[in-house]
Simulated scan of single mutants.
Amino acid sequence: MKPADEEKRDKTMRVIGLISGTSVDGIDVALVEIEGEGYDLQANVLSGFTAPYPDDLRQRILSVCAGQPMALADLADLDEAIAHQFAQAAQRVIDRTGPVDLVASHGQTVFHRPVQGERLAYSVQLGRGASLVRRLGVPTVSNFRQADIDAGGEGAPLVPIVDLCLLSHPQQRRCVQNIGGIGNVTYLPAWDRSQSPQPPAILGWDTGPGNSLIDIAMATLSEGTLTYDADGAWAAQGTPCQELIHDWLQHPYLHQPPPKSTGRELFGWEYFQHCYAAAQHRGLSPTDIVATLTQFTAATIAQSYRSFLPALPDTILVGGGGCRNPVLMAHLQAEFPEIPVNPTDAAGMPASDKEAIAFAVLGYWRWQGFPGNLPAVTGARSAVCLGDLHQP
């Protein structure tokens, strides 16, 4: 008989990945069939969808993210309510497709503070794994960021190591840009695995705002009737203010060298109020404001690449909700007219499921006992296994 650890490595596993990002627009769910060991793995996406939050729960989450005070008892209730929604989303997959071997749940980030001097980073994800395993009866990995933080890292970004395994190319330098509530990039040098099983050094960091400022603008300017700029419709009708974009690009975070991470605490409600006041002072219309914030998001990504990459990529692959905004994608393409800019679908990974797929892989690695962080990306002292494993 094989030892138990070898059986783990040999087994093809059906893993559900779950995450709700900083846009708080719902729970992204992916069922992934995974086999292999470490960097040498294959991942086949069997199913993917987004489960929207109930409106009242979404507003409670956004209130916490905006820094509104909340009693600890209410926070505990919110934690349990989010776990319930995550469990329901996973159960939908199980009901449709049959039993799974593992659930990997990132949960819902409500607070993220990067490393500050001698202070460790601090990151809070609600929707605890112990509640999921009790509801689902399936081994569950959660709390992915804490081990990296304990090792002195930012706890973010965590997806670059998965990008390396699933999206690297033998001849091309690639940037994989996620545009969720916050933007983050993975820089992948060319990697021919047949020639070099050892992967190259990759880079990754949070580039700044993704959809966060645009979403807040839409909710504010529509008086709560809209939560995002569907198909970039408002941005397409407005004219960006280049002077404001130039001013906003001076934000200190955007000039801070990696490794670095950020969140709504920096590019959320408070910063939007600063942008909104400046736009009103210049007499911008609502559509002009959205157009300006949309181009600003693309400009932060471009500035980040030109400031911190060793070389520009041969291609840019985009995931997250931002890749469904044609105006934002057009601005990003205009920043790099010689470089193809496409959703990650062009490389075989469904853009809408990308983050959920990544956490399915990170959960699989936790099951195998394989490190899931990249110290060069997060700033941690060493590579560590990520996540708490909860058994039924």
Rank of each mutant, 00 (worst) to 15 (best):
E355C: 07
P157F: 11
P157K: 06
C65R: 07
H281I: 12
G369V: 05
Q68I: 02
L188P: 13
Q88K: 14
D229A: 07
A89W: 03
I245N: 10
A311H: 14
I216W: 04
Y228N: 15
G38R: 07
Q116F: 08
A147Q: 15
D148R: 08
D148K: 06
G26A: 05
Q59A: 14
A330V: 04
E37H: 11
S304R: 14
Q303K: 11
E223H: 14
L75E: 02
Q303I: 05
Q177I: 04
E118Y: 07
C65T: 10
L120T: 13
P240C: 03
S352H: 13
L72T: 10
D150P: 00
V103N: 01
R9S: 09
V176N: 05
S212M: 07
W269R: 13
A347V: 12
I245H: 09
L57W: 03
D148T: 04
S168A: 13
V138T: 15
A121N: 02
W367G: 01
Y276M: 08
R58M: 08
S63Y: 14
S196R: 13
T220W: 09
Q242V: 06
D229E: 10
F144M: 08
S142G: 10
R324E: 11
S23C: 10
S168C: 05
A76M: 02
A219D: 13
A230T: 12
N44D: 13
M329W: 04
L41I: 14
E338K: 15
K2G: 09
V176K: 08
T109C: 02
K260V: 15
S194Q: 14
C65L: 09
H390S: 12
I245V: 12
A277E: 14
N44V: 13
P160W: 11
V327P: 05
G67K: 02
Y228M: 14
M329N: 01
D314K: 02
P3K: 00
P3S: 00
D192V: 00
Q172R: 13
V24W: 03
L126S: 04
G322L: 06
Q237L: 07
G183C: 06
R9N: 05
L167R: 02
H281W: 09
G26D: 07
Q273E: 12
Q125L: 07
L386R: 02
Q68N: 04
D229I: 10
A4P: 06
L31V: 11
A236P: 03
G36A: 04
S212G: 00
E80C: 02
F86D: 09
V185Q: 05
P157A: 09
G263K: 02
W367Y: 08
A219F: 12
G137I: 03
A334P: 00
T22N: 11
T294G: 10
P286S: 08
I82Q: 01
V162G: 01
I161Q: 01
Q250Y: 11
P209F: 00
C241S: 15
Q368E: 10
P340E: 00
V103D: 00
T294V: 08
F49L: 00
D150Y: 00
P371L: 04
